[in-house]
């Protein structure tokens, strides 16, 4: 712990000593991370909305003729036990007929056809999380069709397919923006840390000759990379929070990132900062030794 505090103090000193460069770097990193966080926020809201819509639409399972109420209740309990299923409501053929006749303005279907043509049905709604998964509704409907006494399982194919496609595109966009952000963050951090390292090169040479290990020299730079990314990530999230609050009257119901995603975003920033710092420092560290040998020659 003491050692980490020492490395943190050193990193903070590097940050403070080159505060002009550090500030420019943090601003640039924040801008990139803001864009990434914005895409995450849009995705989060779209996924939540699509989940709610799909869950509301659900699947209507038509049971075969002659299926007893008891069997229908069995199937209701069975489907309710599926992880993706939020609720299963049993609608008897009598209730369905009543509802149809109401929809038809009081026309008696029974009188017209001589019998009730409607089957018993189960109305299945999905959990929001499952509904947000592309293809989940289709998979669940197909699985339900495999059961005896299930005649058909229908859902709004077209619009759910369109929604699924939209979600897939959004996830691809997420990946693309994530990749580009990572690339930009990596480049900015790589350049900044190289500059800091070059500024400390003489000190590093001295440390090497008095017996510092590479780990001792490298660690403050790794902490510096992580620290810069953490500060930038925090700043990006703050900016996003401010922007969302400012636009909240135009975008009612547009939620901010949940705490778990905020934590993940910051953790990801730190890990990425560490990796970028390692990639920047490792060759430079070995370069110091080679430079020294060339100077001697």
């Amino acid at each position: 712990m003491q050692q980490f505090r020492f490395f943190l103090t050193e990193a903070w000193e590097y940050l403070w000593r080159g505060r002009g460069t550090s500030l420019a770097s943090i601003v640039a990193l924040s801008a990139v991370l803001f864009l990434f966080a914005l895409v995450l926020l849009v995705t989060h809201n779209v996924v939540a909305w699509s989940g709610q819509l799909s869950a509301r639409e659900g699947i209507t399972v038509f049971l075969a003729d002659g299926v007893s109420d008891l069997r229908a209740r069995e199937l209701q309990e069975l489907f309710a036990g599926f992880g993706e299923v939020g609720e299963v409501r049993f609608v008897s053929r009598e209730e369905a007929l009543l509802s149809l006749e109401q929809d038809l303005g009081g026309l008696s279907v029974n009188d017209a056809l001589g019998e009730n043509p409607l089957p018993n049905t189960l109305v299945v709604s999905l959990t929001s999380a499952a509904a947000a998964q592309p293809g989940a509704t289709q998979r669940l409907a197909a699985e339900m069709l495999n059961y005896d006494d299930v005649e058909d399982a229908v859902f709004g194919d077209e619009w759910i397919d369109a929604l699924d496609q939209g979600l897939r595109r959004l996830r691809v966009a997420n990946l693309a923006v994530g990749f580009l952000s990572a690339l930009a963050v990596g480049l900015v951090l790589f350049t900044t840390l190289k500059l800091v390292f070059l500024g400390r090169r003489e000190t590093i040479r001295i440390l090497k000759v008095v017996g510092a290990t590479n780990r001792f020299i490298r660690s403050p730079f790794l902490v510096l990379g992580a620290l810069q990314c953490l500060l930038s990530g925090g700043l990006a999230l703050l900016l996003l929070f401010g922007a969302r609050a400012a636009l909240s009257s135009w975008l009612p119901g547009f939620a901010y990132l949940p705490p778990s995603q905020i934590a993940l975003f910051l953790l990801g920033s730190v890990v990425f900062g560490l990796i970028a710092a390692l990639l920047a420092i490792e060759p430079a560290l070995h370069g110091v030794e080679q430079d020294r040998q060339e100077v001697v020659r």
Partner: peptide, 20 residues
């Protein structure tokens, strides 16, 4: 990787001081 251990057993003084 053992070299730093050797160097820590020595104290070195240079003509140009090499202070931070």
């Amino acid at each position: 990787r053992q070299v730093p251990e050797l160097r820590r057993r020595c104290g070195v003084v240079y003509q140009d001081f090499r202070l931070i």
